[in-house]
């Protein structure tokens, strides 16, 4: 059997992985602080230089670091980041990172995210005396309407791994970052519907091409067998 059948198969299955990923990006076009993930295609095989012995493999291409669109909603506890950096959250599993700034105050006056994880400042979880309004500066300094400066948001940077629930886990040590903080706004998803749709169309066509290659390879094998029979 010709080996190019398997080359084409590897291309088709790598394309399928790409479609799964694009589909997830599209499903999250409305998710605050969502980071689109990318696919990196790699040439592999025991002897990638040789025709018929090279295979395609879909690898993790990391996340897009583009800023998402900022939409203002005027809610004092909603924060948007622009530029490189993450909010740090205290979760039962340790510090997790997020770009989703749809925070609120809990019953104890702590700034928390939708799942109730505390937003970290330089001095631990940020606490606002009950009844006070907060203002957050572009550098991330949080002040109460009566008690003045309370804390500064802990803004960090690190290579990350997505966990779902708009949370990310750092895969290396955290370093300080200084993104611009916007109060009363939310950062949308950075998955771009237009380019994702185009990539999806492209993937569909590639898949079709790989199917044709597989059929052609199969046809050639069939002919060969026929010739042997004569």
């Amino acid at each position: 059997m010709s080996r190019d059948l398997y080359s084409a198969l590897s291309g088709a299955s790598a394309t399928m992985t790409q479609m799964d990923r694009l589909s997830n990006n599209l499903a999250n076009v409305s998710t605050s602080g969502f980071r689109a993930s990318r696919t990196r295609f790699e040439l592999t095989g025991p002897n990638p230089e040789l025709l018929g012995q090279s295979y395609a493999m879909a690898r993790d291409g990391g996340i897009s670091e583009a800023n998402g669109p900022v939409a203002h909603d005027g809610q004092q506890t909603h924060l948007a980041l622009q530029g490189q950096g993450w909010f740090a959250l205290q979760t039962p599993d340790g510090v997790r990172l997020t770009r989703d700034g749809s925070f609120q105050l809990n019953e104890e006056g702590q700034l928390v995210n939708a799942q109730g994880h505390q937003v970290l400042g330089d001095g631990g979880p940020i606490e606002v005396p009950v009844g006070e309004r907060i203002s957050v500066s572009a550098e991330g300094v949080v002040s109460g309407s009566e008690s003045g400066e309370l804390d500064r948001l802990r803004l960090v940077d690190a290579p990350v791994r997505a966990l779902g629930g708009n949370l990310f886990e750092a895969t290396a040590a955290l370093t300080p970052a200084a993104p611009h903080v916007e109060q009363g706004a939310l950062e949308g998803s950075n998955a771009d519907p237009m380019s994702t749709m185009v990539e999806l169309m492209e993937a569909g066509r590639y898949f079709e091409a790989f199917q044709k290659a597989m059929q052609t390879s199969d046809e050639l094998d069939g002919r060969l067998l026929e010739m042997a029979r004569q």
Partner: peptide, 27 residues
């Protein structure tokens, strides 16, 4: 407010097993 669902890790066989795992989101 929306959230992404959990990410599944696919183990990629063949050459380059040492490469970073492929993470796929589920919606």
């Amino acid at each position: 407010a929306f959230q992404d669902l959990y990410y599944q890790e696919l183990t990629t066989g063949g050459a380059g097993k040492s490469a970073a795992p492929v993470q796929l989101g589920s919606g």
